[in-house]
């Protein structure tokens, strides 16, 4: 009897200790998340503030009301077109990179084309600093007359994202059992049909995840766009920097433009949960 009571006491104490530990971890987790998310909150809050609220000392932590004037200005001045430019360029280059990269990845995954070296060479191209790539590309584009054009940026983003697409898609395709492809070959498919009817449908979640990441990379890029665009095809990150150093009333524009450029990222993160780790670690971690 006494043993039972003692055991109950111990259990109770342990439960209490576990609950406290959990509560402690919870507080810590919430605290850390707040610290990391605060800058994002601040960005959003500024975009909804009136000029008086933005330039108020001490800072206004919560805007009085949510008003969209700052966004309205962007659309009225035509600056919002830069978001559209980004959307077009990122989307089209993603489609190209996905198509070319996926079939190339299949070649690497299934036929080990070029042995180990070709694969390593391809991913190593991703490691070069953009400034090193963009400098000669700029000279080439000046010669071709491609500076400040859609196709100029689209081709560059396609090429720059290809190594990533190939590397990721190779990983996803290697996860597909080879017997399925062999079976399709025997069933009467050509190689192309095998890729189209068997491999791609089975890799579709990988294709989708890779496409979202590729889009995000093109969408987020600054340095290529800074150097290769002027006035015609300015993308939103470049537009954000155009507001720097100007009059302080550009703050609202910086914030509103940045929010417009961040919303697609929110969507990407929301739909990509399962593939986030694999995507950002270039396939090294199959989280």
């Amino acid at each position: 009897m006494t043993i039972e009571i003692r055991a109950q006491q111990i259990r109770k104490r342990q439960n209490r200790r576990n609950a406290m530990k959990m509560a402690g971890r919870y507080c810590l987790a919430i605290g850390i998340t707040l610290v990391f998310i605060f800058p994002v909150y601040w960005l959003f809050s500024i975009s909804f503030k009136t000029p008086d609220e933005i330039f108020h000392h001490p800072p206004v932590w919560f805007p009085e009301s949510i008003q969209f004037d700052n966004y309205g200005v962007l659309f009225k001045d035509g600056d919002a077109i830069t978001v559209w430019n980004s959307l077009v360029i990122a989307t089209v280059s993603t489609v190209f990179a996905m198509f070319l990269g996926t079939i190339a990845a299949y070649s690497l995954a299934r036929f080990k084309t070029g042995g180990q070296h070709l694969g390593i060479w391809i991913i190593s191209q991703r490691m070069l600093p953009p400034i090193v790539i963009v400098f000669p590309i700029f000279l080439l584009y000046v010669w071709l007359g491609w500076v400040d054009t859609y196709h100029g940026l689209i081709i560059l983003y396609t090429a720059f994202n290809l190594p990533y697409v190939i590397w990721m898609m190779r990983g996803y395709m290697e996860d597909i059992p080879i017997e399925l492809e062999e079976s399709a070959l025997v069933d009467g498919c050509s190689r192309w049909e095998v890729l189209w009817k068997v491999v791609l449908p089975l890799a579709r979640s990988g294709i989708f995840a890779t496409a979202v990441f590729t889009f995000v990379f093109a969408w987020n890029d600054f340095i290529f766009a800074l150097i290769l665009s002027r006035t015609e095809v300015t993308t939103f990150p470049v537009q954000v920097t155009h507001y720097f150093g100007g009059q302080s009333n550009f703050w609202a524009k910086i914030a509103a433009m940045s929010v417009l450029g961040t919303i697609p990222i929110f969507i990407a993160v929301a739909i990509m949960q399962r593939f986030l780790v694999r995507g950002i670690s270039m396939g090294a971690v199959k989280g």
Binding site: V40, L43, V216, N220, P237, V240, I265, V269
Partner: peptide
């Protein structure tokens, strides 16, 4: 979110 945002943003 911070990691996925544009560095310039």
């Amino acid at each position: 979110l911070p990691t996925m945002m544009s560095p310039i943003v």
